[in-house]
Design a protein around this nucleic acid. Structure first.
Lengths: 371, 371
DNA sequence: TTGAAAGCGCTAACAG
DNA sequence: CTGTTAGCGCTTTCAA
């Protein structure tokens, strides 16, 4: 109520308050008859406040519905308790499970997850990285090891400033600027090729996704073709599926492989994901093409539907949930170790994929699936 | 290096700096030979800064890789440019599309999306609401109209403080505390019942999801049963699917409906979602039960797989993407109108569902799907 | 166990 | 077109 002087000469202007209307720590403090810092302590380390004081503070908080302003807390402390993650797509169930694992692992440690999706575009990823860094996350997880130069620069800068940066879903022995938690997609491609060749298949086709910046799928395909061709008497090629609905795309690709007799011109197809493979499987059933007798089909991802169709779709099961869980553990470890320690040089984390053999690639047998 | 004095009487203490190491506006200002506020203006309204000055600032920003600290900006301005959304599950593709629509609609207006998932638990929803409110979002969107009392209180408080609060995916003429953007699930249940009865079915079964807090699915089921029973000569019941993998659960439910002759004891099943219905459809195919001749099946959600199986699964297509887009428009409208205006009383937004009739509920015909 | 003072990095308000 | 001043709501540091 007293006039406030803020110029040696001039006097008494009404203080221009800019309050935004929410209940503040100050108000709780007044209500409880203490100062702000005591309330602040109560919130963070309740046992360091006298129990009687604590009770009064608790009552005031309860009565007002006070919610601490996290912006202010972060600004003052420099710690955000936020981990940012950028995935290609949140709609894709594959990444959804990773996010779930990450979220679970962080929640217990009191971290919140700031999630962004790039739509499989590294340009959008760059924007998203810039956006989330503005929030000063305590750690940052991105998907894959392919970034724009500007994005890579921001990631390096963040890491060098002590913020853990993790690349998820990838693992590459020689191209690892950052800590990686994932698996070797080239190795998966080779495993897929070997599985088909071991099953007696000789004319292979890899069907890549129409999503142009799914680098990991491309890498599997490239390795698949190279590995297949290294076998004597085996031919292999790659095609790209149309960008439609994956089931329809898979159907279309199978239809395209038919030769003049209406039989597939190849004896095995490996797909970039299970939905594509399921589309092909359904189209084969519809046309009376016997799977696996006439053609073997396999996918990647181990989606639920693959277990249901025909006698089951052979696939590769990536550690979807485990990637997220491991990323959470790695981040917490790096955070605990502190920027000064050597934790930033923590070794890459290679996780394992499982080949799930089902009927769609079984070696020739008497009773085909369809036809 | 100098001794530090800090006593009212003694003077000239070294200010105890707490900087967190990042480049700040101040540093850009110094580098560009202006003051902070000019840099701040440049960032927000570039045209209000002399082009020569702007160039120097741009150069300094470029050279340092400066990223504005959003915490500080929000704290000062009171506006967060954040919209928070809470959905039951980000993995569920249904909500993923809504989030996508929301995200797109907000992005253009420069808002960021803070996303949380409740795992279909209203207790977790309460926690999430508390957590996101700590970020002072400019608006908040939640899923459905069922909340814990504490959550409802927080939502009301936020709304009364001028923050737009929207309930997504629901629309109820008489139970609408907040702005709602969605559709009437009871009406959908009635439509489903009518569709089956119109197709000549008389013994109906609603198969609810095993997710206990999917209130909207329960509401559809309740209305389905009530509407069906209102028809002369029609019987209807509801059962709950096991909580497993939805395809397996659908299979199990169909198996359970078989009577002693191995035929379904009902002539139509309506499912809480398409995956359950697809499981049942596959199980029918496997057992040689003709769909739709022996039994009609329909789902909800219009998932991609439903179009692929048998002759296609009849379903109800909810406005998945449109809900998100409409929520974005509504929020932006309320934000623009300002808390003072009557926008907070904006009427509820009812959106339309489409019944997608496919072969699985076609009236009896000569050539059944399977068998 | 509690408090006083300073400061986190930015923007609002008003001046010039 | 640019600057000055105060302040957002919280935590840190040091002291009692």
């Amino acid at each position: 109520m007293t006039a406030r002087l803020r110029n040696p000469v001039l006097a008494n202007a009404t203080p221009r308050r800019r309050s935004h209307g929410r209940v503040t720590l100050q108000q709780i403090a007044e209500a409880a008859g203490v100062t702000k810092i005591t309330v602040s302590r109560y919130l963070r380390e309740p046992q360091r406040v006298a129990s009687e004081t604590a009770a009064r503070i608790a009552a005031a908080i309860e009565a007002t519905g006070y919610l601490p302003n996290k912006q202010a807390g972060m600004l003052a402390s420099g710690r955000s308790k936020i981990v940012a993650a950028i995935v290609p797509s949140i709609a894709n169930s594959v990444f959804a499970e990773t996010v779930q694992g990450l979220s679970e692992g962080l929640q217990d440690a009191g971290y919140e997850l700031l999630l962004a999706s790039s739509g499989y575009s590294i340009d959008r990823e760059e924007e998203q990285i810039r956006a989330v860094l503005g929030w000063s996350p305590d750690a940052l997880a991105v998907t894959g090891r392919h970034h724009t130069p500007a994005a890579a620069a921001m990631l390096r800068a963040a890491r060098d400033a002590g913020t853990p940066v993790i690349e998820m879903w990838d693992w590459h022995p020689r191209d690892a600027d950052f800590v990686q938690v994932g698996f070797d997609h080239a190795a998966v491609g080779r495993t897929m090729a070997r599985h088909l060749v071991d099953g007696g298949r000789r004319r292979l086709l890899y069907v890549d996704t129409g999503v142009t910046e799914d680098f990991r799928a491309h890498e599997r395909g490239k390795a698949f073709v190279a590995a297949a061709r290294a076998y004597r008497g085996v031919s292999a090629q790659a095609v790209t599926a149309p960008p439609d609905d994956a089931f329809e795309a898979g159907r279309a690709v199978l239809a395209r492989t038919l030769d003049t007799d209406g039989r597939p011109g190849v004896d095995a197809l490996a797909f970039a994901n299970d939905n594509l493979a399921c589309g092909a499987l359904l189209e084969a059933q519809r046309r009376g093409i016997a799977v696996p007798r006439d053609v073997a089909l396999m996918g990647f991802g181990d989606f639920a539907i693959g277990r249901q169709l025909g006698g089951g779709l052979t696939t590769v099961r990536p550690p979807r949930h485990e990637i997220g869980a491991q990323v959470a553990r790695t981040i917490l470890g790096m955070l605990q170790a502190g920027p000064a320690s050597g934790a930033r040089h923590a070794s890459q984390r290679q996780l394992r994929c499982a080949l799930v053999g089902r009927r769609s690639t079984a070696p020739a047998e008497p009773a085909p699936l369809a036809g």
